[in-house]
Simulated scan of single mutants.
Amino acid sequence: MFCLLLALAGILYVGYKLFQHQRGKTIIENTNNRHVLITGCDSGFGNELARLLDKRGVPVFAACLTEKGTAELKKHTSSRLRVLQLDVTDQNSIHDSVEFVKRHLPKSSGLWGLVNNAGLQILYAPLEFHSHEAIQKCISVNLLGSIDVTKSFLPLLRKAKGRLVFISSDSAIIDWPCRAPYVISKVGLEALAECLRRELYHVGVTSSTIQPGPFKTSIVDPNEMKSTLQRAFDSVDEEVQQFYGQNWLNKIKESFSGIPGIQYEDLSPVTNAMYHALFSVMPKRRYRCGLVCEYYFYPISLLPGWFNTWYWKMSPPPDAKRT
């Protein structure tokens, strides 16, 4: 009996997955009447998505942090795309962005999509090297900013029965050493998306997360990572410096040079996933983007915790010994 139930469950699961895959290929109609707001459009995924949607006739509100980012995006998009400046950590800036969107939405229309893309990584180093300010900034932008922006735009999203999309990371799959604040912020985004799926279920607003693997964007710059690590090392207590040592520091900095070799330059797997989350009749709960993320990081994450701890452990300082 147990084997029969197990087989039945397996058949139902495979059947549902096939239905989901086939149904997910269908794109909703009239995408040129569905307005989408994207944060963090200065560069990277947000910038690429804004251009993609603009080319496909989708009306876009592209939120940039800097005037330079605003000017550059305007050069490569149509007059249909509207650019605004938004600092996701500033309540006044968020309020102004809501008013901007309301002014430019058609009368009695809501906001179809909100893509929470704005994010940063302050430092790749053990927690002892992260200052309070660095930790706070990372979590404020990546997590609290998304919470505040989402909260402010929910009435407009409810009105359209629209889509919420959160740009997470492979850091929500693997608890990387030396990236604790960043990992915390991305795991938090996953939890936020799950909570909102349940809260908004009866009003028709869906919530999806995108988990990119190692793609080449400005958030990961080997030279900048070396500089920030050196500055952090120079600023910590002498006891911490002595524990880790100069040899360990040099080894970690050297490892950054290999990052470009594993990064995907083509960002389309991520932007295509974002597009699917926004406009598929049956969007997925989460999208793992890139072969490394889908077929390496994710399967390993399912293995026992002790194995993941051993496999992903940080390179130890010369004198560090387990007791």
Score class of each variant (00 low, 15 high):
Cys3Ala: 13
Leu6Tyr: 07
Ile11Tyr: 05
Tyr13Phe: 10
Tyr13His: 07
Tyr13Arg: 08
Val14Ser: 04
Gly15Cys: 05
Phe19Ile: 03
His21Cys: 06
Arg23His: 07
Gly24Asn: 03
Ile27His: 02
Ile27Trp: 03
His35Met: 02
Val36Pro: 03
Phe45His: 04
Asn47Lys: 14
Leu49Tyr: 04
Ala50Glu: 08
Ala50Pro: 10
Arg51Phe: 02
Leu52Gln: 15
Asp54Lys: 10
Asp54Gly: 11
Gly57Cys: 10
Val58His: 02
Phe61Met: 08
Ala62Leu: 11
Ala63Arg: 01
Ala63Glu: 04
Cys64Ile: 01
Thr66Pro: 10
Thr66Cys: 10
Lys68His: 12
Lys68Pro: 00
Ala71Asp: 14
Lys75Cys: 09
Lys75Trp: 03
Thr77Leu: 07
Arg80Asp: 12
Leu81Gly: 04
Arg82Lys: 15
Val83His: 09
Val83Leu: 11
Gln85Lys: 15
Asp87Lys: 10
Val88Asp: 03
Asn92Ala: 14
Ile94Leu: 09
Ser97Ile: 00
Phe100Lys: 08
His104Met: 05
Leu105Tyr: 11
Leu105Thr: 08
Gly110Val: 11
Gly113Gln: 05
Leu120Ile: 13
Tyr124Asp: 09
Tyr124Pro: 01
Pro126Glu: 04
Ile135Gln: 14
Ile135Leu: 15
Gln136Asp: 14
Ser140Arg: 09
Ser140Asp: 15
Leu143Asn: 01
Ser146Ile: 05
Ser146Trp: 03
Ser146Lys: 05
Asp148Gly: 01
Val149His: 08
Lys151Trp: 11
Ser152Val: 07
Lys159His: 15
Ile167Pro: 00
Asp170Trp: 04
Asp175Phe: 07
Asp175Thr: 13
Asp175Arg: 12
Cys178Ala: 13
Arg179Ser: 13
Arg179Asn: 11
Ala180Leu: 13
Ile184Pro: 00
Val187Asn: 11
Ala193Thr: 01
Glu194Gly: 09
Glu194Tyr: 06
Glu199Ala: 12
Tyr201Pro: 00
Val203Asn: 06
Val205Leu: 10
Thr206Asn: 06
Ser207Arg: 02
Ser207Val: 09
Ile210Thr: 00
Ile210Lys: 00
Ile210Val: 13
Pro212Thr: 04
Gly213Lys: 03
Phe215His: 04
Phe215Arg: 01
Lys216Met: 13
Lys216Tyr: 09
Thr217His: 07
Ser218Asp: 14
Val220Trp: 08
Val220His: 06
Pro222Glu: 07
Glu224Lys: 15
Ser227Pro: 00
Thr228Leu: 08
Thr228Pro: 01
Asp237Ile: 01
Glu238Trp: 06
Val240Ala: 10
Phe243Ile: 03
Tyr244Val: 01
Asn247Ser: 15
Lys251Ala: 15
Glu254Phe: 08
Glu254His: 13
Ile259Lys: 06
Pro260Phe: 13
Gly261Ser: 14
Gly261Met: 11
Leu267Ile: 15
Ser268Met: 12
Ser268Arg: 15
Tyr275Asn: 01
His276Lys: 12
Ala277Asp: 00
Ser280Ala: 15
Met282Val: 11
Met282Glu: 12
Pro283Val: 02
Pro283Glu: 06
Arg286Val: 01
Arg288Met: 12
Gly290Cys: 08
Tyr295Ala: 07
Tyr296Lys: 00
Ile300Tyr: 05
Leu303Tyr: 06
Gly305Ile: 08
Gly305Met: 09
Thr309Val: 13
Thr309Met: 12
Tyr311Gln: 03
Trp312His: 12
Ser315Trp: 12
Pro316Gly: 08
Lys321Gly: 00
